[in-house]
């Protein structure tokens, strides 16, 4: 079941040790519609990670409120009620393999669902489903292996399966492809996209890579200095080249090359090209090749 996410006037501070970063979120208003796959972009320190943490109560607002489905997170929220929200919101951190700890893959994948009070049988069923989904064959003896003996790419899959097995309604991912080679990255993101579709989730994906935005997301949130400065479809966001330059954001390769070609040849190409296919078609259409 999909759920809507809505932030209204959210402000937040962040404290780690003696260092306090004031207003990591400075008045965020944002509505993510049920069933959408939204990419969140912005340069380092713009507030992307804080936004993610806000969605499952790892960071509480100092002002404003966050609505997740029919639950609302407010300042001074009680701990008990947060667990209900965390059950609905699955969170895949950057380099999630650093959260693996159990003796076996099966136990690690089951850790989340067990904490949320599902029955043993139910948990086992989900763990196997999730493992299959991330391309780990449960029949191949993988479930009994120690996660620490796996390769980097496999660890990443197990960690993601651990979140999928919680069967969340909202899936939040921070750079799930970071550090993987191109093939591994493509596989992970494709499987996340297919899970998003079949389970009808509301998914939020933080990424630095504009190719990911083009390939997987249907709309984009741009963050800058703790605020959401743009929220639109992928097409419209990359159409506004001046704004993106102002925020020091990259363009997808196709769009960047399109502008370069337009500049060098003096010919306008039709529309906004986001993929190499679109760019190739556009070049043929205007007769440049």
């Amino acid at each position: 079941m999909a759920m809507q996410v809505k932030l209204s006037g959210v402000k937040a501070d962040y404290q780690l040790g003696p260092i306090r970063s004031p207003l990591v979120l400075n008045g965020v208003d944002l509505t993510l519609s049920s069933g959408s796959l939204t990419a969140v972009v912005g340069h380092t320190g713009a507030g992307k990670s804080s936004l993610l943490k806000m969605l499952n109560g790892l960071l509480l607002p100092t002002e404003g409120e966050v609505q997740v489905g029919d639950a609302t997170i407010k300042p001074n929220h009680s701990k008990k009620a947060l667990k209900e929200i965390r059950k609905k919101v699955g969170m895949v951190f950057q380099f999630p393999e650093s959260q693996l700890f159990a003796e076996t893959v099966e136990k690690d994948i089951s850790f989340g669902p067990l904490n949320f009070g599902f029955s043993r049988d139910e948990v086992l069923k989900r763990a196997y489903e999730a493992a299959m989904q991330v391309g780990i064959d449960p029949e191949g003896g993988m479930m009994e292996k120690s996660p620490f003996t796996l390769s980097g790419g496999q660890k990443r899959r197990v960690a993601i399966a651990g979140i999928l097995a919680m069967d969340p309604d909202i899936l939040v991912l921070d750079e799930p492809g970071a550090g993987l080679d191109p093939a591994g990255k493509k596989e992970i993101l494709t499987l996340i996209q297919s899970w998003h579709k079949t389970r009808n989730l509301t998914t939020i994906l933080v990424t630095h890579d504009m190719e990911d935005v083009v390939r997987y997301a249907d709309n984009v949130v741009v963050m800058e200095k703790g605020k959401v400065v743009m929220h639109d479809t992928v097409y419209n966001v990359f159409a506004d080249v001046e704004k993106l330059a102002e925020w020091h954001l990259d363009l997808p390769d196709a769009r960047r090359l399109q502008l370069k070609i337009e500049h060098e040849t003096g010919k306008q190409l039709p529309g906004v090209c986001l993929t190499p296919e679109e760019l190739a078609d556009a070049l043929i259409e205007v007769g440049l090749v």
């Binding site: 090359l257 370069k260 070609i261 060098e264 040849t265 190499p276 296919e277 190739a280 078609d281 070049l283 043929i284 440049l288 090749v289």
Partner: peptide, 25 residues
């Protein structure tokens, strides 16, 4: 390669971005 697949008349060998843009000009 995509242009080649679409039967456009592009040179048959590898091109860097600079070379491609120059060729298009």
């Amino acid at each position: 390669r995509l242009l080649q697949e679409r039967n456009a008349k592009v040179p048959p060998e590898f091109m860097t971005e600079q070379e491609l843009v120059r060729w298009l000009c």
